[in-house]
Design a protein around this nucleic acid. Structure first.
Length: 294
DNA sequence: CTATAAACCTGCTGGC
DNA sequence: TGCCAGCAGGTTTATA
């Protein structure tokens, strides 16, 4: 499940690996992932474009091409991009890509390849996505930013402009639970379920608390922990929970830092009380009933 | 405006 | 053992 640190890791890797590369062809067995175009048109338009830079906006990856054209990719839950020289083979469930880079271990979640960008140098960018939720928008910059919802995103969680004052201003007028508000991309961009659970546990705030009832001291802690936890996860190249893989197809090293997510019934790492699970806005929320009072 | 719920998908888990 | 309902999650779209 890629959240901000995982997407940032992918973007950092891509910037090291494929800047100035030219796309020579594209393949997919799931054309529905192209949201605002069709396969024939997309293939025709993307051929010959040079990748100039790659940036992150929330959990979206933006590829800037020559000619003011951009491609916005959202990996959603199980999507991940891998770069390398690959050998592609057909499997029962779809397509599998075997990395020819020495030392790479192939892995269950890398086998659901549904799209491949072929580059002039012989490298490929492969999109593996078991659940097929990933989406691509492609076209002129201003059209794509609107269509893909990037213009509607709230301040990025790691944007220096997300000061305590700004944070309070966007959080405090919401009536919904703090957990739901933290995960709402139109309020703050980049935080998903795993990090939201970690942030609230570290801040000793109950996930179901209505956002507008939070004290200034609690909001201060939540913001400080948000930045601290996300920055640490970026340093460690993302979490290894779930299906996340980096561009070499490897899982991250942040797994040991997942303090409450999916630990229902297991002892709280602070006080030993069993972790509880509740549902908020169709999403699971994990917390310690003793450390995080209502 | 807000809030809630379904839809998109498929592999895995747990109950019978 | 085998089947199948239910669950998981990021975001958009639909509905109240």
């Amino acid at each position: 499940m890629p959240e901000l640190p995982e997407v940032q890791t992918i973007v950092n890797d891509l910037n090291r690996k494929i800047i100035d590369e030219t796309v020579v062809d594209f393949w997919t067995d799931w054309p529905k992932l192209l949201k605002n175009t069709n396969l024939t048109r997309f293939k025709k338009e993307i051929r010959g474009l040079k990748i100039e830079k790659i940036v992150r906006r929330g959990k979206n990856i933006l590829f800037y091409f020559s000619g003011n054209t951009i491609l916005s990719l959202h990996q959603k839950m199980t999507g991940h991009l891998m770069v390398g020289k690959w050998k592609v083979t057909k499997k029962r469930t779809g397509w599998s890509v075997k990395n020819l880079i020495p030392g790479h271990q192939d892995d269950r979640v890398n086998q659901y390849i549904h799209a491949i960008f072929y580059l002039k140098s012989g490298k490929m960018i492969a999109l593996s996505d078991m659940r097929k939720f990933a989406r691509i928008d492609f076209g002129k910059e201003k059209d794509v930013l609107s269509l893909s919802g990037i213009r509607a995103l709230g301040t990025d969680a790691l944007d220096p402009e997300l000061t305590l004052d700004n944070f309070k201003a966007v959080i405090k007028r919401r009536k919904k639970s703090i957990k739901q508000v933290l995960m709402d991309p139109s309020v703050i961009a980049g935080i998903g379920n795993i990090y939201a659970d970690n942030i609230l546990w570290s801040s000793k705030v109950h996930p179901a608390r209505s956002a507008k009832t939070l004290k200034d001291s609690e909001l201060k802690k939540i913001l400080a922990n948000t930045k601290k936890i996300l920055k640490k996860a970026v340093r460690l190249r993302g979490t290894s929970v779930g299906d996340y893989r980096d561009t070499a197809g490897k899982s991250g090293r942040y797994g040991g830092e997942v303090l409450v997510y999916r630990r229902t019934g297991e002892p709280c790492r602070r006080c030993g009380i069993p972790i509880k699970k509740i549902v908020l806005g169709q999403r699971s929320a994990h917390f310690c009933p003793k450390c995080q009072k209502r």
